[in-house]
Design a binder for these strands. Structure first.
Length: 565
RNA sequence: UGGGGGAUCGUCUAGUGGUAGGACUACGGACUCUGACUCCGUCAGCGGGGGUUCGAAUCCCUCUCCCCCAGCCA
């Protein structure tokens, strides 16, 4: 029922605790749930929770439910439910039951009556401002509502009429009767039900009262016989309320809540509120914009489920706050794609090269391995012609030391082909290099004895005649500061990186790539990993760069620039 | 400031009385028809101060810093 997961997963406090409980015979199996509210798309932070929940259940002979926490119809939509199911399934997980908190509305209503009958809940018709004022502050206790000691029969009558629609929205709420002086504010008679005439995406107009998170969540857990309700740290001080409700209600099981720290990553934002703003204000193209940390965005960018799962397992589970560098996620992608991605040649920014001693009109087909470390991935034939394109970055008229690429009079190997020498540099009126005239060394062809001759550099290329023009989209971090949401003096959108998207319309890719299917991925040698975008059309290939290769030269270059070497 | 949490190499994370370990990064080197991959090596840490103990990241006291909570959001 679950996706493959590393059996060598390291111990963390939740796994350790559950293992101990299992050893003690506390549970026959572990049942978990992933409980998103369908009011947005899932992001990489959710992936951490998904992986944790499914892993714990799978490791301890249980299962995981997908439960939509749909208690606030004002913000929830069917399209979000659809996207969430798509994303969880894409990650490789199969939930046992598809559940909805709204499926339990009737049971929850009964539970509320149960509390009322035991004088543990009451109807309060004070307005929100009054209730807020009575709640007290962090340092001062609250004051009790004048309705707090209303007779049970009256509470029951009012609550039944609340449900029946006898009162306008916001006219009254049902509150738990706990302790207005509790140091934990969540215990100061929290709201359990509110009146809200809002069309619910599943229950339609059946209800005009809706349970709050606190009243719905734990009880839903209990109804589903969830053994471990795993959630993030901000719910830690809701746990006494969670436990109070479980203890005072005739629920069929007694789940426990365990909290862990949520995932934070640098140079991005993770809150649903901020992600929603990015989409609604048009800062990105949509929830699946490849720059978004959403699973839909990462998928479109070219991330694989395996890489994301490996990442989640690598970062661990603790209660300490952490900010994971985005590069850690990217490295997991590289590690995954390095072994799986077929190699191809593509030139992002073409520079024309004429091989002056190559016969005009001829094509030589050369064999190119699809993967240098894995012969089983086979090989393909790539065409070489008199005119080719190389990367503009691979030629420098005035090259620094340690520049192993092409320079006037210098030699370089064309990957899978010959060694060439740069004889002439052709410039336009602006002094820009527009063409190189090179000669090739026939004896240095790949596979021939002369191929042993060593040159410092090897560069990629494509045949000008055969290459396919493609659009290539390069992505950089969405924000240009590490913690865009942490700036109290500025709006986070002020830190958007204007360079986060670069579109190259004139890239040239080796023939064959125009027939690429979706979900295929490639390494464009020396450049990075690329995937076809959904915008890909026959005759108009569009590739996204998922991640670059590790670039030691770029680092060296930076060092040279700063005078370190 | 009331309550709830958290502080271990640059980053993430083990270690819960017996030599602080791993991964990533960085740096150096080997290899290389991808400046990739791989391999080898190096640097680097217990928030501060007391105390208990033969011995403390771990136990005790104290201080400091960070995060969360005053929605009829989740």
């Amino acid at each position: 029922m679950n996706a493959p997961d590393s059996s060598t997963a390291p111990a963390h406090f939740i796994r350790t605790r559950i293992a101990r409980e299992m050893a003690e015979g506390l549970h026959e199996q572990v049942v978990t749930r992933f409980p998103p509210e369908p009011n947005g798309y899932l992001h990489i932070g959710h992936a951490k929770s998904i992986v944790l929940n499914f892993a714990m259940a799978a490791e301890f002979d249980g299962y995981t439910n997908l439960r939509f926490d749909d208690t606030n119809p004002a913000r929830e939509e069917q399209r979000f439910i659809d996207s969430i199911k798509t994303d969880v399934a894409w990650l490789g997980y199969r939930w046992k039951n598809e559940c909805y908190a709204s499926d339990y509305f009737e049971i929850l209503y009964g539970y509320a009556l149960h509390l009322i009958d035991r004088e543990l809940a009451y109807v309060d018709e004070q307005d929100a401002d009054t209730i807020r004022a009575q709640r007290g502050t962090l340092t001062e206790p609250g004051t009790e509502s004048p309705r707090r000691n209303r007779p049970t029969a009256e509470n029951r009558d009012l609550f039944e009429r609340m449900r029946a629609g006898a009162f306008p929205d916001g006219a009254m709420v049902l509150r738990a009767r706990i302790d207005m002086a509790a140091p934990n504010i969540n215990l100061r008679d929290p709201v359990l039900y509110r009146i809200r005439r809002e069309h619910h995406h599943r229950t339609g107009d059946d209800w005009c009262i809706y349970p709050s998170y606190d009243f719905a969540h734990g009880q839903s857990d209990a109804i589903e016989h969830i053994t471990h309700s795993l959630c993030t740290l901000e719910f830690e001080d809701h746990r006494p309320l969670y436990d109070w409700l479980i203890e005072n209600l005739p629920v069929p099981s007694r789940p426990v809540q365990i909290e862990f720290s949520r995932l934070n990553m640098d140079f991005t934002v993770m809150s649903k509120r901020r992600l929603t703003r990015l989409v609604e204000e048009g800062h990105v193209a949509g929830w699946d914009d490849p720059r978004m940390p959403t699973l839909a965005g990462l998928r479109r960018r070219g991330f694989t489920p395996d890489a994301i799962r490996a990442f989640c397992s690598e970062i661990g589970v603790t209660k300490s706050e952490s900010i994971i560098p985005f590069g850690v996620l990217e490295r997991n992608l590289r590690d995954d794609l390095n072994v799986r991605a077929p190699r191809r040649m593509a030139v992002l920014k073409p520079l024309k090269v004429v091989l002056t001693n190559f016969p005009e009109g001829e094509t030589e087909w050369l064999e190119a391995a699809n993967h240098p470390q894995n012969p089983e991935m086979g090989s393909r034939q790539v065409p070489l012609t008199r005119e080719i394109f190389i990367e503009q970055d691979d030629f420098l008229e005035e090259a620094p030391r340690k520049f192993f690429r092409l320079k006037p009079g210098g030699e370089v190997r064309l990957r899978n082909a010959f060694i060439i020498r740069c004889d002439d540099v052709v410039k336009n009126d602006h002094g820009e290099v527009i063409e190189l005239r090179c000669s090739f060394d026939e004896t240095s062809r790949s596979g021939l004895p002369g191929a042993d001759r060593k040159v410092k550099g090897t560069i990629h290329w494509v045949s000008a005649e055969h290459a396919v023009t493609a659009e290539v989209r390069l992505y950089d971090r969405l924000f240009d500061v590490p913690d865009p949401g942490g700036d109290k003096t500025a709006d986070f959108v002020d830190h958007l990186n204007p360079q986060s998207l670069e579109i190259l319309q004139n890239a040239r890719v080796e023939p064959g790539l125009e027939h690429t299917r979706s979900h295929e991925f490639f390494q464009f040698e020396r450049l990075g990993y690329f995937v076809p975008d959904p915008d890909f059309r026959p005759g108009r290939p569009v590739f996204n760069r998922a991640v670059t290769l590790r670039d030691t030269w770029a680092r060296l270059e930076a060092q040279l620039a700063s005078g370190r070497t």
